[in-house]
Amino acid sequence: MNQQQRLHNEILVIQAQQGATESLEQLIQCWQDRLWRLAWRLTDNEQAAWDVTQESWFIISRRIDRLEDPSAFSAWAYRITSNKSRDWIRRQQRVRRADDTYAESREETQCHQVNQQAEKLSDALASLSGHDRAVLSLRYEDDFSISEIAEILRIPSGTVKSRLHHARGRLRHLIEDTKDE
């Protein structure tokens, strides 16, 4: 920034301190891009940079009358934008930590529920007859087709279908009974 631009800036600051909104608007036009670039470099987020810049201008406009040295405007504006960027980063870190804690808690709850369900299923399967367990195991654990199960058990496919149907019904009934407990 050359001497003439610095002088122009100082005049705009003095006028803005005296309440001239046009001068503040000119300062915003002159400094908006620079402050946004700083915020973007610090936050590494385009939308956050706009939000931070807007917050910075709000602070600048409310406190410009407190700036004792108009030639220090650029450093002052950069410091405000830098502080607002750090505030944004801290908020994001808190949000991430809260999200991580929530996700871990939710994951633990889901794992616990899955483990409980698996335990109930295992208990229910253990209480079924050998025929029922065999047909269910071949179909759902080993992923055999109806015709393959028929060949393995040396029974007709219709019998396999019937046994599967009844075994699923008995299993469902056992699981529903454990829900009521």
Score class of each variant (00 low, 15 high):
99 D>V: 03
102 Y>F: 07
1 M>K: 03
147 S>E: 15
45 N>D: 10
68 E>Q: 12
180 D>W: 03
69 D>A: 12
131 H>L: 15
146 I>P: 04
18 Q>E: 11
11 I>T: 07
64 I>A: 12
160 V>Y: 04
163 R>H: 06
34 R>E: 11
116 Q>W: 00
117 Q>E: 14
39 A>L: 02
175 I>G: 00
40 W>N: 10
82 S>V: 00
24 L>S: 02
7 L>H: 14
146 I>M: 04
101 T>D: 13
71 S>E: 14
53 T>A: 05
9 N>G: 01
68 E>S: 09
139 R>V: 03
29 Q>L: 08
105 S>E: 10
94 R>S: 10
33 D>V: 06
154 R>N: 15
178 T>D: 15
120 K>E: 14
127 S>R: 08
39 A>F: 02
92 Q>T: 00
49 A>I: 00
155 I>M: 11
172 R>C: 12
1 M>F: 01
180 D>E: 12
42 L>Y: 01
67 L>N: 11
93 Q>E: 12
131 H>T: 13
33 D>I: 08
79 R>P: 02
21 T>I: 04
37 R>A: 12
6 R>W: 04
24 L>Q: 04
71 S>I: 06
59 I>A: 11
161 K>A: 10
98 A>I: 07
175 I>V: 06
124 A>I: 03
147 S>H: 14
92 Q>N: 05
140 Y>C: 09
158 G>A: 11
115 N>P: 00
6 R>T: 08
116 Q>M: 01
140 Y>T: 08
159 T>C: 01
15 Q>C: 07
167 A>L: 01
108 E>K: 11
34 R>N: 09
48 A>G: 12
179 K>P: 00
41 R>D: 05
147 S>N: 15
57 W>N: 04
93 Q>R: 10
106 R>I: 05
75 A>I: 04
106 R>Y: 14
115 N>C: 05
103 A>N: 06
59 I>E: 11
12 L>F: 02
155 I>Q: 09
180 D>G: 03
158 G>R: 10
88 W>G: 01
52 V>M: 10
45 N>K: 06
115 N>F: 03
158 G>W: 02
137 S>G: 10
138 L>C: 05
99 D>T: 06
104 E>L: 06
110 Q>H: 11
11 I>M: 08
132 D>A: 14
110 Q>T: 11
14 I>G: 00
39 A>G: 07
147 S>C: 13
113 Q>K: 15
169 G>E: 15
61 S>W: 09
48 A>T: 05
129 S>G: 09
83 N>G: 03
127 S>P: 01
77 A>S: 08
125 L>S: 07
103 A>Q: 08
52 V>F: 07
